[in-house]
């Protein structure tokens, strides 16, 4: 998968899909077993620790839980200054100026910079974490479920903030989320993961309007929309039976055991990612046949009529 400059690429999937592992690989926190990670044209997987550390200024991250992302023993100022000091910036006035400017950019009054994390609300803390991530003017920020723990009204505020920052600073985001509705709203491109495998990728609106992979379709169907009339048509008609899903390595498609469209071929051979349109890839043997039987997918996720 790729993250284009100045764009937001979504990475969506359920637990166990390997979203966060991928983030750790990109950030160099876990070693790469196979394959490569390229950044700005250069390979960064397998770099020696010292050179990897130097990339810290250009590659940053924001996590799901803002309170545990900040050391409770230190002030906000200290936490924000840490990445600058790691860059070798030790001039006090420069640090103070940059901390102040960045806090202002994320909408935190800079006179609260000497307070400790527990004195802020969740939304404010996430703003502070974003400030720490952008203070070194990175090119790529990984947002690992960065809005998942927030309440709806605060989530909207943070999503807007991220959108504004991207426009001002031409940031690229890798937006990791389990919530396909949020991904649909704020990402330009999306990659759908299932058990560590890419199911499909492409332009977000295209992928969510006409999914090419049955898993994407299932994910969209399961995600409820806040419109009772539309949702009643989309809900599961009857309860499904809970049967253990066989795990363990198979040579076939990882989604085949749950896929309603699976044929014997799917259990035997793992489908390769193939291009089906410009910038649009899918890993499914049954595409496009399966879509013909289920036209619902096309009407299902058109955003509910505005209120």
């Amino acid at each position: 998968m790729t993250v284009e400059r100045g764009r937001t690429t979504g990475l969506v999937g359920e637990s166990g899909a390997g979203k966060s592992t991928l983030a750790k690989v990109v950030l160099g926190l876990v070693p790469v077993v196979e394959g490569t990670v390229g950044f700005d044209g250069a390979e960064i997987s397998g770099l020696p620790a010292v050179r990897r550390r130097a990339l810290g200024a250009r590659l940053q991250a924001v996590y799901q839980d803002p309170l545990s992302s900040l050391n409770p023993s230190y002030s906000v100022f200290w936490s924000l200054a840490e990445p600058l000091r790691a860059r070798g910036i030790s001039d006090r006035s420069e640090i103070a100026a940059r901390v102040g400017a960045t806090l202002e950019a994320v909408g935190i009054e800079s006179d609260s910079r000497d307070r400790r994390p527990h004195e802020f609300s969740g939304g404010q803390l996430q703003r502070i974490c974003i400030a720490r991530a952008i203070i070194t003017s990175p090119e790529l920020v990984i947002l690992d479920e960065a809005v998942s723990a927030l309440d709806l009204s605060v989530q909207a505020q943070i999503l807007n903030l991220l959108r504004d920052l991207q426009a001002q600073r031409s940031l690229s985001y890798l937006f990791i989320s389990h919530d396909i509705a949020v991904v649909r709203h704020c990402c330009h491109d999306v990659t759908v993961l299932y058990q560590g495998q890419v199911m499909e990728a492409g332009d977000t609106v295209e992928v969510t309007d006409s999914p090419a992979h049955p898993y994407t379709h299932a994910l969209l169907q399961a995600s409820p929309v806040a419109n009772p009339v539309a949702q009643r048509k989309r809900q599961l008609p009857a309860p499904t039976v809970a049967a253990p899903v066989p795990t363990g390595r198979s040579s076939g498609c990882v989604y085949a055991p749950r896929c309603p469209f699976a044929v014997p071929e799917c259990h035997r051979r793992r489908p390769q990612l193939r291009e089906i349109a410009a910038g649009r890839t899918v890993a499914c043997h049954r595409y496009p046949e399966w879509t013909e039987g289920s036209t619902t997918s096309r009407v299902a996720y058109t955003p509910a009529q505005r209120l």
Partner: peptide
Amino acid sequence: ELFVIAARVSGVG
């Protein structure tokens, strides 16, 4: 802790 991971990501040795 996430804050240590964040520090590592920032390149703190």
